[in-house]
Design a protein around this nucleic acid. Structure first.
Lengths: 339, 339
DNA sequence: GGGGTCGATGGTAGCGGTATCACAACCGCA
DNA sequence: TGCGGTTGTGATACCGCTACCATCGACCCC
């Protein structure tokens, strides 16, 4: 069962290689009867088209790339699974391209990859999706791409996102409704646009409840567990300790819970903690984390679908917003009455 | 700066395309002076060789695949990063191929991928590395592959592994040295060969300390957090509750700690818990987990290196064993004196 | 009923490289 | 001086497929 080629199939089904090629590409104007014969021959011989040959001859490579620069295993895994699922449906191959710790040559690396592999298109995840140079470079190559959760800068490429601000607003309202009036906030990585939106949602919710945002303690975090540790230590060392902490992602929220354990502060009795993203971690720590479910898998699945449409030159929406939802678990409760 | 080809480079440097090809492939018998001229032209024109063209014409595709069927984001991320790092060093591309939820057509899917992409070789992670049919299928295609932590069945392909039994032995000895004499064990997924080895290490250590392994409570787990929950509930509901739990991986250990929290059992004061793997999770939960550091990243980095050697027909060791080490954190302590 | 259109198919020139062979220039040695 | 053997280089046939154009009968319209 050695590899066989289009020529073998053509011979076996008594047509020219061109007709086999037509069947392969689902082109019209092949008689159904002929199509059937060719298809049968292909299955019988276990014919597999050669991807390199197709991409060399045609304009398509049937290969798309997923670009990321994100250190979170959970996020990357989710995004990758989503993209992969869509690729499997559509007979495409996915080239996964991590761009961590590259510094300057990032753009060059991407362009080299694009030129070498003849990629058809790219899905870009945050924070890369907000990288203006990268966008410009891809544009210069005329390569189609879809961005996941980029910043607000306008560009004609399609976008898949969730409403970070509304979600943060909801979470904050939930904490306020529980009775919390002193809520510590841990900001996300300054490089991520969503960090800004989440803070804005937090502040807007406070304002709408008549609570002065300026009075609430806010600490800078960097999306890592360790940065959550540092930020939470500061928040909990305040003289007026907050009764709740809202962290901009789950890793940092896990840090806050860790610190609470260290300090002997009971969660949620003495301190409520909530996160953002709903990664696997959220339901693995104790107590399980109240958080916002971010549909990372679905976002990337959707983005990949849009990219494929884009490549096929179908009409594509400029922007798609996916639903989030609040996941209430055991890390939040009404504040203990202290007075 | 549109894409340029070997012909352009040849014209620019005044040689034939064949000579450019020679320079590209680092073949000998090109005059240093000529080589320099061609190299210069390539950089000046920002020439990037076309991967599809090379793989079509030559025997190499400069593409290798990483096969996995593992639901753990942390593990997959680590393995992928390691393979990717080695690929980047050697100018290869990595095709990541998850094979989850495929059932029967798994082998076909892999073979189709192999035939379509003209992959040069494969790195196989557990539990796929123990899949005899897969191994046979790859063999039938004459494709080089390296397995990470496969089971004991002999095969000429290189293997990268750690000593699971010795590591489990060490961990158990550590718990015994702390004074524990009733240790609950949570077994790993029956499909993973390492599960068996870890259990054996546990039992051997007990025996060498004169403790009867048959007296220790053992529960079946399936490597997931949830299965750890179930197993730990059973262990802690025993009339003679163990003073320590050794779980075969970190996720299940996290489950045990979760259950301890639920039951109001203090860790490590009333119950020691230890895990295996040292994933990111181990240092994110509270208390941080004593565990065995499994060098997943390094294993896959090494395996990829061996694969490349194999492809180049260099001499390759049949088996490489990487060092593990015990990471002592706060989840273990001497048992509380109860009598 | 002749020319135009369309449906179904085939022939063939590449795509951008590599492999095989050929060949000229140069070398040492008898 | 002439011979075989290197060494550096070029010409050219592919690799497996797609794009473009040609072909050829059937059908259609006025």
């Amino acid at each position: 069962m050695a590899r066989c080629t289009i020529t073998d199939v053509a011979a076996a089904s008594g047509v020219s290689i061109k007709t086999v090629s037509r069947v392969l590409n689902d082109e019209p104007s092949v008689r159904p009867e002929t199509r059937r014969r060719v298809r049968e021959a292909m299955t019988a011989m276990n014919y597999q088209p050669s991807l390199p040959a197709r991409s060399l001859a045609g304009r398509r490579s049937s290969l798309i790339a997923l670009l990321f620069e994100n250190p979170s295993a959970n996020y990357v895994f989710a995004v990758q699974s989503g993209a992969m699922a869509k690729c499997r449906e559509t007979q495409l191959r996915l080239l996964v391209q991590p761009l961590n710790d590259l510094g300057e040559p990032l753009i060059e690396e991407v362009l080299a990859m694009v030129d070498q592999t003849h990629i058809d298109g790219v899905v870009i995840t945050p924070p890369l999706s907000a990288n203006a140079e990268l966008i410009a470079a891809l544009d210069s190559r005329g390569l189609p791409f879809v961005r996941i959760a980029p910043d607000g800068t306008s560009h004609s490429s399609p976008i898949v996102e969730m409403d970070d601000e509304a979600a943060a607003h909801e979470m904050t309202s939930y904490l306020l409704a529980l009775g919390h009036r002193r809520i510590g906030f841990i900001k996300g990585h300054p490089g991520h646009h969503s960090s800004k939106l989440r803070l804005e949602g937090f502040q807007a919710a406070l304002a709408s409840w008549g609570v002065d945002p300026a009075e609430q303690p806010v600490e800078q975090g960097y999306n890592s567990f360790e940065s959550g540790l540092t930020a939470a230590r500061r928040l909990l060392a305040c003289t007026q300790r907050p009764t709740a902490i809202f962290a901009s992602n789950d890793d940092m929220a896990a840090g806050a819970i860790f610190v609470a354990h260290e300090f002997g502060i009971r969660v949620p009795d003495e301190l409520s903690v909530s996160g953002f993203d709903d990664t696997q971690l959220a339901s693995t720590i104790y107590p399980p984390l109240t958080t916002v479910h971010q549909p990372s898998y679905t976002m990337s699945y959707t983005a990949t679908g849009l990219l494929i449409d884009l490549i096929k030159r179908n009409a594509v929406p400029a922007s798609t917003q996916l639903a989030h939802n609040l996941v209430k678990r055991a890390s939040t409760a009404p504040p203990r009455r202290a007075n």
